[in-house]
Amino acid sequence: MHIHRTPDQIAADRARYEDHQRRGLTFAPKALPDPSPLPAPPPDPARVLGTEVIAGGWYWTCTLTAGQVIRVEGAAGTSVSLAVWAARDASERLNLPDTVKVQWTTELRKGRVLLSDMGRVLLSITEDSSGAHDALTGGSSAADVGQGVRNCRDNMVLAAGKLGLDRRDIPAVLTLFAPVRVDAGGHFGWRGSLLSGRA
């Protein structure tokens, strides 16, 4: 038999959890900033360190140092899947389950953060004109799109490979501009109306 915890211990832990729950579900969403304007104002050219136009269906990687900002701009109808590793130790990486449960929401938008598996913030979402991102269902795979068509999974294997990593290192990916939401019955659906960022 297991050692039971005392009713007092359980009551104290439950009370603390319910306090966290109230703050996370009720108060935190009220403190979020408004979405960014669309179209987004262009960044100050003097501060831009680099620009890359990523071909449709392809991948790209870069290293950010703390304090730098990356802007991801998707053409209409484009989704972009994102993996993140800590530059100093790639075993620390984006952890979407922690990201969503710590913030009590699967809806990542301006004011939210992306957490690593070590409880640290990797990136903060400082501007976001969309607010319609998918933290749950990931990107495409060969099984989805068919052999011979580029897919997200293969892109991630290639990107990781060129960083000296392999498929074991690919975390669950965040897909930007993908308004996947869960309906009241637990089914996933694509809610295109959210892409305006104002829904």
Binding site: N95, P97, K101, V102, T106, G119
Partner: peptide, 15 residues
Amino acid sequence: TCAGCCSCESNTVRF
């Protein structure tokens, strides 16, 4: 299958 596993590190952020 959305909430992952607990860790000492995330516990400190959560609780």
